[in-house]
Amino acid sequence: MNIEQARFNMIEQQIRPWEVLDPAVLQLLAVVKREDFVPPAYRALAFVDTEVPLPEGQCMLAPRVEARLLQELKVQRHESVLEVGAGSGFMAALLGHRARRVITLDNRATLARMAADNLKRAGITNVEVREADGRNGLAEAGPFDAIVLSGSVASVPEVLLAQLKPGGRLIAIEGAEPMMQATLYTAQSGKAFAKTVLFDTVAPRLDGFAEPTRFHF
């Protein structure tokens, strides 16, 4: 496989057509080596328009979804970012190139270790990986300029929104199959949040977040 050609095709045929047009994001995707964050057994899927399996039944999001979330979050160089769902560490690597500081959480020791190892090999030093349950965020390290949930939830918990700075943003994929929506929350004055629906997609669930009550008759 010609890796650089495959990377170019991923960007031009999958990511750019999905309205990812920010030159800085496209350049970052050309530089950060996604294949180094994919388990060796699935290296051939590194640039394919699909979710890539990770240990313990988890997965990396499809490249176009990762890219669109990154673009819409609009992270700035001076900002601190919290990611819930470290996975292989790839999204944290992308965030690390754009932010001052990133903390990424994963409640599975295997994945937290994988993410930390991958980030270390990539030479990214401003990302901290913690093995922790991300449902309640990380209030002691906040507040944050941006929070990203790297997986879907039925709805965003208020405890996470409360950890945003004024003007801070949280991006998440909300809802249930077959229709979910990537949604951006922006913290306003007081405890108000502006909510913007960005695009329709489907993504695997993050561990441990509450599901809506289902009525049985």
Rank of each mutant, 00 (worst) to 15 (best):
41 A>H: 13
146 A>H: 06
70 L>R: 00
215 F>H: 09
90 F>E: 04
92 A>W: 06
103 I>Q: 02
190 G>V: 05
131 E>I: 11
158 E>C: 11
158 E>I: 09
138 L>S: 07
43 R>H: 11
154 A>F: 08
122 A>W: 01
166 P>H: 13
83 E>L: 06
105 L>T: 03
104 T>Y: 07
171 I>H: 05
29 L>I: 02
63 P>F: 08
109 A>P: 05
77 R>H: 13
217 F>L: 10
197 V>L: 12
140 E>G: 07
34 R>G: 01
101 R>N: 09
58 Q>D: 08
125 T>N: 12
205 R>E: 09
133 D>W: 06
170 L>E: 05
141 A>W: 07
68 R>A: 15
27 Q>D: 15
126 N>M: 06
110 T>K: 10
206 L>W: 00
156 V>Y: 02
99 A>C: 10
201 T>R: 02
91 M>P: 00
96 G>A: 07
83 E>G: 10
87 G>A: 01
147 I>T: 11
187 A>E: 09
207 D>F: 08
195 K>A: 01
66 E>P: 00
211 E>N: 08
37 F>E: 04
216 H>M: 12
8 F>W: 12
93 A>H: 06
203 A>W: 01
61 L>M: 13
166 P>F: 11
57 G>D: 12
86 A>N: 06
91 M>R: 05
19 E>L: 09
179 M>H: 15
41 A>M: 13
216 H>K: 10
142 G>E: 08
3 I>P: 04
217 F>G: 09
96 G>V: 08
167 G>A: 12
153 V>R: 00
135 R>H: 12
155 S>T: 14
155 S>P: 03
42 Y>A: 11
64 R>N: 10
102 V>A: 06
41 A>Y: 11
199 F>Y: 09
55 P>W: 03
31 V>L: 15
124 I>L: 12
216 H>E: 13
61 L>Q: 06
143 P>N: 12
52 V>G: 04
159 V>F: 00
69 L>F: 03
62 A>I: 01
69 L>E: 11
199 F>C: 08
93 A>Y: 02
132 A>Q: 14
134 G>W: 00
79 E>W: 07
113 R>M: 07
61 L>V: 02
197 V>R: 12
11 I>R: 01
25 V>Q: 01
42 Y>F: 15
